[in-house]
Amino acid sequence: MKNNIKVQRAIHNFTQQDLADKIGVSRQTINAMEKGKYVPSTALALKLSQLFKISVNEIFELEAED
């Protein structure tokens, strides 16, 4: 699964730590999500969507192997 969390984070001018604090996870989790090593739960995806004010579909995208 692909995501553009890193891009959204840059648009909002957040560091990984800022974003982590805002949605209540560790910075390591943000880092792992950006690298595509961790796929967040639906709840966490919705929190990102609410924070960035865009839909979940605009943040996450399925890939062929999903």
Partner: peptide, 9 residues
């Protein structure tokens, strides 16, 4: 309005 920080399981 939700508390975004309350994601902690």
């Amino acid at each position: 309005v939700l508390n975004l920080k309350s994601i902690n399981m």
